Simulated assay, not measured.
Amino acid sequence: MNASTQVICSFALTFGVPMVLAVREYWQLGPGPWHLPPNEPIPPDPAPLPDTGASPRYDKPLPACLIPQAAPARVRELA
């Protein structure tokens, strides 16, 4: 086996077999929820969430362990 045949076979085995398996799985999935029959009405968009005025991420205060504390001053000791 010459070098070019070795490279082609290695490439096909490395990338070809996983690609064939991926395409096979893709085709087995079938139509998803985005594929509606022609006479089926399109569902309406969901209603927007009510605005509470503040982000829910900032509604709670930080726990005490996450608030930075001032480091205690170092005391020099003379020996």
Rank of each mutant, 00 (worst) to 15 (best):
P46R: 09
P72M: 01
P41I: 04
T14S: 12
E77R: 13
M19T: 14
V23L: 14
L13N: 15
P50V: 01
T5V: 05
P41F: 02
G32R: 02
L49A: 10
A22W: 12
P46T: 05
P18V: 03
P72C: 01
P37S: 13
P38L: 04
Q69W: 00
L49W: 07
T5L: 10
P31K: 08
G53K: 00
D59H: 04
P72E: 06
M1Q: 11
L36H: 05
V20L: 15
P31D: 13
P38A: 10
T5Q: 11
L66P: 01
A71T: 12
N2V: 03
F15G: 03
W34N: 15
P38G: 05
P56Q: 04
P31A: 13
V17G: 01
A64V: 12
A70G: 09
W27F: 15
A70V: 09
P61N: 01
V23G: 09
R24T: 14
P37Q: 07
A79F: 07
I8F: 14
W27K: 14
D51R: 04
C65N: 08
V7S: 08
E77I: 09
L66C: 14
T14D: 03
A70E: 05
F11W: 14
S4R: 12
T52A: 15
N39H: 10
P31I: 03
D45K: 15
M1T: 10
N39E: 11
G30H: 02
I67M: 11
R76C: 02
P68T: 00
P68V: 01
P43E: 02
P46Y: 11
L29M: 15
P56D: 09
A12Y: 10
R76H: 04
P50I: 03
A12M: 11
T14P: 00
D59Y: 05
L66D: 07
P68H: 04
L49T: 05
M19V: 01
T14L: 15
M1P: 05
A71V: 14
G53H: 04
P18T: 03
H35S: 15
S10Y: 07
A73H: 06
C65K: 08
C65H: 12
S4L: 14
R24K: 07
P61F: 01
Y26H: 07
W34Y: 11
S10T: 10
V75H: 06
P31T: 08
C65A: 12
P38V: 06
C9Q: 08
Q6V: 10
V23Y: 12
L29Q: 13
P33I: 02
Y58M: 06
P63W: 00
L62C: 05
L66Q: 09
P50W: 06
R57F: 13
G30P: 00
L66G: 05
S55Y: 11
P37I: 04
G16T: 05
R57S: 09
P31C: 07
I42D: 07
L78P: 07
F11R: 09
G53M: 05
M19N: 03
